[in-house]
Structures are given as C-alpha cells and as structure tokens.
Computed example of a mutant assay.
Amino acid sequence: MLSVISYTTEEIAQLLKISKLTVYDLIKKGELPSYRVGKQMRVDASDLEAYKQRARTIPVSDAPAVVAPPAVRTPVAASPIGPRPIVITGHDIGLDILAKHLEKHIPGIRPLRSFVGSMDSLISMYRGESDIVSTHLLDGETGQYNLPYIRRLLVGSPYLVVNLLSRTAGLYVQQGNPLGLTNWSDLGRPGLRLANREKGSGARVLLDEQLRLHGIRADQLIGYAQEHTNHLGVATQVASGEADVGVGIEKAASLVGQIDFIPMIQERYDLVMLKHADNLPWIQSLIQILRSDAFRKELQAIAGYDLSRTGEILLET
C-alpha cells in the first residue's frame, strides 16, 4: 500500500526530476507534506501522489514560481540596551576569527555563531534567520562551488558572495592506507565501511555528488546512514578503526592524527550576505576586514588554507 511507503528528499528530487533545493521549497510552502525521522525529512508516497495530481490540474499560467523570494530579515538596530546581533553560520575556525574582528572593528553589532552545514546555512538565509552564511557546496554537473546553489535558492533578492578561503578536501583513511584507496571510484568496493557527515553539509554533498558521478549506490557503503556533525567526528571514527574511509578537510586529519589524508579536491569556502540598506555599511566593513593584513595573518597561521582569493567578490546581484 502507498501509505506505508515514504521517500527522502533526495529520492523525491530524483522521482520528480527537480533539484533538492526545489523539494525543500515545496516542503517549506506546505505543498508537499513531510515529517522528520531523526535528522531526516520523509514524504509519504500518498502525499507525493496527491501533490502530483494537484500539479497536473494547475494551468501553467497560474502555477506558482518554483522558488519564492527569500524572506528578508527585519533589521535589528543597535539600541541603548545592546548591539544588533549578526548571525554567522558554519563550522570553520576562520569564521570564529572573522567574528572576533567584526566585533572589534564594527560598532553596534554583536556577532553570534550558528554551527550548521552549508545547505542548512543557505536555507536559514532564505528564511531570514541569518546574516552571514558560509557554504562549500560542489555542483557535480558544472564542477562549480556554491554559485549554482545560491542562484537557485536566493532568486529575487539582492545578495553578495565573497570568498573567505579555499581548503583541501579528500578522503580520511586508516594509517598506512591498508586498503589502497586513492580515488572516488574506490568507494564502490564491496564491504567498505564509511563514516558519513550529516545531510546538507558540504562534505556530504561532495560525497553524494561523487557517488552519483561514479555510478555508486549509497547503500553499497556500510555506515552511510550513520551521521556525524563535524569533520573531527568522521576523522575520529576512521582513526579508531570503526570506519575505513570518510570525507572531510585536511585540517581535521592533522588534528586527530593516526590517520592518512588523501587530497581529492580544492574546495572554495564562500560567504553570502543579503543586501539591504541596513546591511550595506557593515558589509563594506566586513570586506575590508577580509582584505586586511591583520585578518589574513591570523588565517595564514592555520595549515591548509589558500588565501589567494580571500576578500574577492565572486558574485553581486
């Protein structure tokens, strides 16, 4: 019976031949009923079929846009009782350094950190819940980082994309690399045990894109459904022998130790900000901070960062 079958957001995207971002938008607008099982969103087959039936009866001229303009967060002006909070999303330590510089150099604001993955960061901006979001999402079709996702999700609202840094991502393997894992296609080997990241994280999107491009089914990997919320968690699983391989950044491998790191790709880690009148003054100050010698000097002390494009405006609408 249809009522006992449910689908993940990834499966819905494949069935409807639409992007995962569009699925999130349909769920957000209430057009596609969903529920959460642990950290995973599910849609019942009966609800999917009902949505398809409704979609067939809507004339093209009356159909809503695929992605609605994102909600603009109401500016919180500085007041006698405290500064305006500025929410910065993401995990990288470079964001903590940035928050410190913002608080020091821009009066009237209070940086707040939100530790969420890249996809959830962009969705939080779409909902008007964050001010500076970080993202490192690979689009497998174009080979580009971030911009394809940003364009699809933030349509209809002016925004700015600026580079924070680039860093090496790749495979964590056990010390000495006993299984001889050297490329993405090796993930298709039978019996391989994976330490995985949570849905929406840049590392998870990188893995899923590579599995798709190399024709590897996710269910071939033991442990694919077990999720860790940061790079250190994945690296630790590999170091302890609980997993054979994981995807993450080079820095975490050096912190955990007792594992080897196989570099696979140079990922671009960008910042996104919505542009409206109250944001423009601090956005300009933020760009000046990114380009300053003091900020770059702190980042240069961290191994594995490429700062050749730090502060470069990549897209402005």
Results as ranks from 00 to 15, higher is better:
residue 112 L to P: 02
residue 220 Q to I: 03
residue 93 I to A: 08
residue 53 Q to D: 02
residue 143 G to Y: 11
residue 301 A to C: 05
residue 232 L to H: 09
residue 131 D to Y: 00
residue 71 A to F: 04
residue 34 S to Y: 08
residue 45 A to Q: 08
residue 317 T to V: 06
residue 310 T to F: 08
residue 243 A to C: 08
residue 55 A to V: 07
residue 114 S to P: 03
residue 248 G to S: 09
residue 151 R to K: 13
residue 181 L to V: 15
residue 61 S to D: 02
residue 181 L to Q: 13
residue 207 L to D: 05
residue 188 G to S: 15
residue 290 L to Y: 02
residue 74 T to H: 03
residue 25 D to T: 09
residue 126 Y to V: 00
residue 158 P to L: 03
residue 284 Q to K: 12
residue 237 Q to G: 12
residue 96 D to M: 08
residue 184 W to L: 13
residue 240 S to M: 11
residue 212 R to P: 05
residue 261 F to N: 12
residue 235 A to P: 00
residue 237 Q to R: 11
residue 232 L to A: 11
residue 166 S to Y: 02
residue 35 Y to E: 12
residue 167 R to A: 05
residue 137 L to A: 04
residue 162 V to M: 09
residue 120 D to E: 11
residue 140 G to C: 12
residue 240 S to K: 14
residue 76 V to R: 13
residue 160 L to A: 02
residue 18 I to F: 06
residue 66 V to W: 02
residue 292 S to Q: 06
residue 206 L to K: 07
residue 145 Y to A: 15
residue 217 R to S: 15
residue 301 A to N: 05
residue 165 L to M: 12
residue 224 Y to L: 01
residue 24 Y to H: 15
residue 315 L to N: 05
residue 253 A to E: 06
residue 276 H to T: 01
residue 280 L to V: 07
residue 280 L to C: 00
residue 213 L to N: 14
residue 42 R to Y: 11
residue 226 Q to I: 15
residue 66 V to A: 08
residue 1 M to V: 01
residue 67 V to T: 09
residue 181 L to Y: 12
residue 153 L to D: 00
residue 171 L to A: 15
residue 198 E to C: 10
residue 100 K to D: 09
residue 278 D to P: 00
residue 299 L to E: 08
residue 15 L to K: 13
